[in-house]
């Protein structure tokens, strides 16, 4: 079994924190993993993405082929659309609905929604509001991770929670609990 994921967002939004937890869980589950990241100049408010590949078999390429990506997971709606040529015919988009507007020609929400609608398999959720609702506004990324976990069948969701415990553990149990609550809110939303 193999799942190819593109994590997308804007530099500084924290897609790598999601990748870190997935990486921990994959290692713990003895999966093969390759994860190509973007560093350097493009991090300065530009578009960023990470190719994340998980498999029960050895993986060759660090990059995902066009038309082969199973999941596009984005912290920002326009960034989700940027990688559509990579999405497999059966692939899913899971995206935050809150736009990150730092360019003058950012498209209107209706235009973005219509475009996402064309893709078919889309889970859109407002991770910022959901994180606020459950009282952990700083855990928006974990809401998205939770939503993604519902489609990330290669990984055990419990392992991802252990990953959250591992990554946030040094910040105290309250922070861990808030992040796990955010994860569960996202998971519930996407699984229904």
């Amino acid at each position: 079994m193999k799942q190819d994921i593109i994590l997308a967002g804007v530099g500084g939004q924290g897609i790598l924190s999601i990748a870190t937890i997935i990486g921990w869980a994959a290692l713990d589950q003895n999966l093969y993993l390759k994860q190509a990241e973007v560093h350097g100049m493009s991090q300065r408010g530009g578009d960023v993405q990470s190719n994340l590949r998980l498999s029960t078999q050895p993986i060759s390429s660090d990059l995902i082929a066009r038309g082969a990506c199973d999941l596009i997971v984005s912290l920002e709606p326009m960034e989700a659309l940027r990688y559509i040529p990579y999405l497999a015919p059966t692939g899913w988009i899971i995206t935050n609905t809150t736009p990150f507007v730092n360019i003058p020609n950012y498209p209107d929400t209706e235009v973005l929604n219509a475009e996402l609608g064309k893709v078919g398999n889309v889970i859109s959720l407002d991770v910022d509001s959901m994180a606020k609702e459950i009282g952990s506004p700083r855990s928006a990324n974990m809401v998205l991770l939770g939503a993604m976990a519902a489609r990330l069948t290669i990984l055990d969701p419990e392992k991802l929670k252990e990953g959250i415990q591992h990554v946030f553990g040094r910040k105290g149990q309250a922070v861990v609990d808030a992040n796990i609550a955010a994860f569960e809110a996202g998971y519930k939303f996407a699984a229904k």
């Binding site: 493009s42 530009g46 730092n102 360019i103 475009e115």
Partner: peptide, 13 residues
């Protein structure tokens, strides 16, 4: 799939 035409470049700043 065809690239989305509504996606705008987001250069670093």
């Amino acid at each position: 799939r065809e690239a989305s035409q509504v996606t705008m470049p987001r250069p670093p700043a």
